[in-house]
Design a protein around this nucleic acid. Structure first.
Lengths: 152, 152
DNA sequence: GCGATTGATGGAAGTATTTGCAAGTAGATA
DNA sequence: TATCTACTTGCAAATACTTCCATCAATCGC
């Protein structure tokens, strides 16, 4: 699994190696995620707003594009937590890697860890010749308080 | 885990029990999924088109709403395969339950099974007091042919 | 360092999906 | 069965996200 402790030069090297470029926008977005308190996940819209509050002007299209690129590179992981947004967080090593239990009605999200999931992911990527980027178990269910109504 | 062998009356009973109703639209969508050859997953748009081809007129909003409802009820499972669409399939019992290995660059999807994943999901839902609806392992990576370029 | 090449950006337009609201209808009640 | 209530539907408008395209600028070669 790709490491999360990128510095700008490592990112530049990886981008250049494949014909890409390190732009100020990409560098700032990476730094922003690295300075975020651990475990937080952000939506594109939220990231865009927070960048603007720090006088970092990056267009919303570039925010979306960069999030997608960094997810494809294995630097970020993209989370679908069942609501209208996609969320992103640093794709950390084993110790910070976690999974999500989501209530499909009220949207409550509970994080949990499970060591063997990463092992399962490694096995299948090895078998199929893939390079592993991310591995997420999403458990969907209805939380106790929501088990009485059809909709939230 | 909820069973997939719903008939219209069972669906009506479950809906009525929680203040909902069985409409012709909902019944037709359920039947459509049940008559689909095993293992197929459909996007909302594709389902809408296929329904129209059978002279079954259901508005696109109702298609989206019904897919979401049935996912929340545990009848369908929603898949994010990394492209622009969400896909839906019957949320079957253990024997048909599978997971996805997805290439983040070209979008290739490989299905695989792994018995212990459902067990892991059951454990966490039991512990947290949730009713289990679905449990999906998404493994993201780069397939062998794509490991040379930045983008697809 | 300087210019050329080509990937990246920003803003507008497009796409998939969700939501608001008025009209329709399933299911309950008598 | 007739009536009523509130859930559902269909359409249109809104939202999250992606793509198009003209312009900009990171990197490369000299």
């Amino acid at each position: 699994m790709a490491t999360s402790s990128y510095n700008p030069n490592a990112l530049r090297a990886e981008l250049n190696g494949k014909g890409g470029r390190l732009t100020p926008q990409r560098e700032k977005i990476l730094t922003f995620f690295q300075e975020l308190p651990g475990g937080e996940h952000l939506s594109a819209e939220a990231l865009h707003t927070m960048l603007h509050e720090q006088e970092i002007n990056v267009s919303i299209s570039t925010v979306y594009r960069t999030l997608k690129l960094m997810t494809q590179m294995g630097i970020l992981r993209e989370l679908d937590l069942g609501d209208d947004y996609k969320y992103y967080e640093l794709n950390g090593p084993r110790t910070t890697h976690h999974h999500h239990l989501i209530c499909t009605k009220c949207g409550t999200v509970i994080e949990f860890k499970h060591d063997s999931i990463l092992t399962i992911g490694s096995k299948i990527t090895d078998k199929e010749g893939f390079q592993l980027l991310d591995c997420q178990l999403s458990v969907h269910g209805v939380c106790a308080p929501c088990q009485r109504s059809i909709t939230s």
